[in-house]
């Protein structure tokens, strides 16, 4: 396996709920809508989804409740068996794995964080975190060492002996995160990890999460119903509705170029300047004069607002990650993003 092949590759995946889904899917006429399927007595949890997650990427799946986002992520880890299509993890068709290998895969490669934490109430913080290690049969001493390490990582030092009920929501989720990281997974699933938390704590946890991700660089599938959160965290966002992916793109693209009415509605109230990066607006140099200091492409329009307003240049050079100029950005276009001109929306 090469490093640039996708870690998760999902092709035409279906997950139907109902009395006899496999047979139904086979006989179902193409182009049946979500409503048609429901009329036949089935619920399309995942409807013909194709998506790939690259190594080290953070894919955020966004959708309202019932849109199928949680179902999809459970298909990736085969907590749900898909009804049709294929899902490959690191090149292995997970539906073809016998139970033993599936368990092995989860024990060595996957970690998952849950909305309501999913902590075992009868175990201490330490024991919860060490749980996956215990499952794979690590000896007591080694798993204690490792668990303490992760607990420290999530900032819960000194609470090792507490029971989940003795902790606040935020602390409980830190335990959930620590547990999911204990086995050093390659793939990290997070199912609305911060939804159950108060807004202030949520913000703090997101920062914490970004810090961890910067440190660990995992391949991540992150689920949320909070669009702001998606924009804040994602490399790419997949927006789901009725089991299907409406659009899967970078936050900038989603904001700048929503492809369906549904997606557009989400982006309406978003302050695009906070989302769109300079690099996204940069166009090939193509004859424009490149003069003066380049803008850092990783900065959002909001972050460069002051300069945009005061800079006299019509076209501003934008620098890529390597510091070299990657293109120029039309000041007018950037200002329109900044001012929220609906014409661009």
């Amino acid at each position: 396996m090469t490093s640039d092949s996708p870690v998760i590759s999902c092709r035409n995946a279906w997950k139907l709920f109902g009395p006899n889904p496999r047979q139904y899917l086979k006989s179902m006429p193409a182009g049946h809508s979500y409503e048609d399927i429901r009329a036949d007595g089935y619920i399309a949890g995942v409807k013909d989804v194709s998506v790939e997650v690259a190594k080290g990427e953070m894919l955020v799946i966004m959708g309202l409740s019932g849109s199928g986002k949680s179902t999809l992520v459970r298909c990736f880890s085969r907590l749900h068996d898909i009804t049709g299509g294929t899902i490959e993890v690191e090149g292995q068709d997970i539906m073809a794995l016998p139970e033993k290998e599936l368990i092995e895969l989860r024990r060595s490669k996957m970690g998952m964080v849950f909305q309501s934490f999913g902590l075992l109430p009868h175990r201490t913080v330490l024991e919860n975190v060490a749980f996956p290690l215990e499952m794979r049969g690590q000896d007591r001493h080694a798993r204690r060492e490792r668990a303490l390490e992760v607990i420290k990582l999530v900032g819960l030092e000194g609470r090792e002996e507490y029971f989940p009920r003795e902790l606040s929501g935020g602390q409980q989720q830190r335990v959930g995160i620590a547990r999911s990281l204990a086995i050093e997974p390659d793939i990290w699933f997070l199912d609305e990890p911060f939804s159950a938390l108060d807004p202030l704590i949520r913000r703090e946890m997101q920062d914490e999460f970004l810090r961890l991700q910067a440190m660990l660089g995992k391949t991540i599938v992150f689920i949320t119903h909070d669009f702001d959160e998606a924009l804040r965290l994602a490399d790419r966002i997949a927006i789901m509705k009725d089991g299907a992916i409406e659009q899967c793109d970078t936050p900038d693209q989603i904001v700048l170029d929503p492809q369906t009415e549904y997606v557009r509605k989400f982006t309406e109230d978003i302050d695009k300047a906070h989302v769109v990066h300079a690099s996204v607006l940069a166009k090939p140099v193509n004859g424009h004069a490149v003069e003066g200091d380049a803008i850092d492409g990783d900065r959002t329009i909001h972050q460069i607002a002051r300069q945009l307003v005061s800079d006299p240049r019509e076209h501003l050079p934008v620098a890529g990650k390597d510091g070299k100029v990657m293109g120029v950005m039309a000041r007018q276009e950037a200002l329109e993003v900044l001012l929220g001109d609906s014409a661009n929306g």
């Binding site: 880890s77 024990r107 749980f131 996956p132 959930g176």
Partner: peptide, 11 residues
Amino acid sequence: EIVEAGKMSGA
């Protein structure tokens, strides 16, 4: 969720 947490821990 506790069930899934268990499964994802490779139980």
